[in-house]
Design a protein around this nucleic acid. Structure first.
Lengths: 229, 229
DNA sequence: CCGTACTTCGTACGCTGTACCAATAGTAGT
DNA sequence: ACTACTATTGGTACAGCGTACGAAGTACGG
């Protein structure tokens, strides 16, 4: 066992790629990814800035590893249930994870090659859809549609200034309505007023669209040939 | 007419916020938003770096303006057609625009307050949906769902290494398949093989999911009370 | 012609990522 | 115990970043 391998296992002292990535994610969550610099990260780890480069090829490499670390947190679709429940679980998990690490969404745009956790996730999702009776083509469609919805929702949610229904009501009345001239934006005013009064929760919004999409995908499944072996 | 106002109108010489933003967008399109610096931008405009700060409060302010400039390029939903056609047109337009300016997607995460073009767009979309018979709540749901799909699709598309079906076939066979061990990723291998053989075009993928979502939203419209005045 | 406001930008400061290389620490072989 | 070696750490330096500050240049109303 080399010194390097020991360090990879040790958790309380010594650096390792894992420890570097974990601390980087923590920093990005707390301060935003824009505030994440190699020097700050090194300081948080009690190390010199250049020490990080023993575990990470470059900052780009670190960002890639951070993204894949985030993907590892997303639940894989469970295998024992029907496809809709499985897809719902993993979509809900993905939204939660991306809400915890909003910087990850913005980072996805600039990086091209998916990491290992990303690939494992895609494989598991595709497997679930194929076993549920979708053809290769339809499984691809479903995959794109579901991922687009999840990522896009997380992206929109990350730029909202509120998290809960209560916060929304406050902000809608205190910020939105005064900023929107009623003659120029009559419909947005109507929406803000109605939603503030009725209560509006982003989490419910997510499941609404998700269920609608899942229901719309159901008829695209091919007949279950697996039942006639 | 002040000197400032003249400059805002002039297009061939002299700076203006518009000229600064337009050149910044051009630079970001060409080199990526990571390569966009105030000094480079100033050089492209034949000006000194600090001159830009007369038209722009900070780089953050510039990025906000760039995003809103991108939103201005997206077609508003036309008023003379049915709601599905209107929504389809503006969604297709949004995808095209975001594909032209992929950096805009990654930027949306970090900024909170929508610009004027963004607000005008939201107002027009909400108006279209309300006139089509959706309640405030259902129009909100439809808005979230459609925007999530468009943004999420653009986000995924921006991280694809290919743009057309032909490029995909090349890359699938040359990059994906060799990188994916068939025993670990059987379903992804199957997908890559089938899609490479059958042909796969991201633009068709987009309209497939879009039409599915639009069809799923149709039954959520309330009965047309406007027909019984 | 002058005062005043508008527009430009040179300099400087503290930050960034990281190339390069020296220093140290821990292990294996003798 | 001594050497040879590799694994690990980080100090210094450099080019480039955003931008605060303040000084120029320019145009116009009086």
């Amino acid at each position: 066992m080399s010194a390097r391998e020991r360090r990879q296992v040790a958790s309380d002292a010594g650096l390792s790629k894992k420890r570097v990535v974990v601390e980087a994610v923590r920093l990005a969550d707390r301060e935003g990814v824009g505030e994440l610099s190699m020097r700050q990260l090194a300081r948080a780890l009690g190390a010199g800035a250049m020490s990080l480069y023993y575990y990470v090829a470059s900052k780009e490499d670190l960002l890639d590893a951070m993204i894949d670390f985030v993907f590892e947190e997303i639940e894989l679709p469970p295998e024992e249930t029907d496809w809709q429940s499985a897809m719902r679980r993993r979509a809900v998990s993905a939204r939660q994870v991306l809400a915890r690490h909003p910087w990850a969404i913005g980072l996805m745009e600039s990086r091209t090659s998916p990491g290992p956790a990303n690939l494992r996730h895609r494989e598991a999702v595709t497997a679930c859809l194929r076993r549920a009776g979708f053809t290769v083509m339809m499984a691809t469609h479903a995959n794109w549609l579901l991922d687009s919805y999840v990522y896009g929702f997380a992206l929109q949610e990350s730029s909202l200034p509120f998290d809960t229904a209560d916060e929304f009501a406050d902000i809608a009345e205190g910020v939105f309505l005064p900023q929107l001239p009623p003659d120029e934006f009559p419909y947005l005013n109507e929406s803000a007023a109605v939603l503030a009064a009725a209560g509006y929760d982003p989490a419910e919004e997510f499941t609404f669209g998700l269920d609608l999409v899942l229901a719309a995908l159901e008829p695209l499944r091919a007949p279950h040939v697996s039942l006639h072996p």
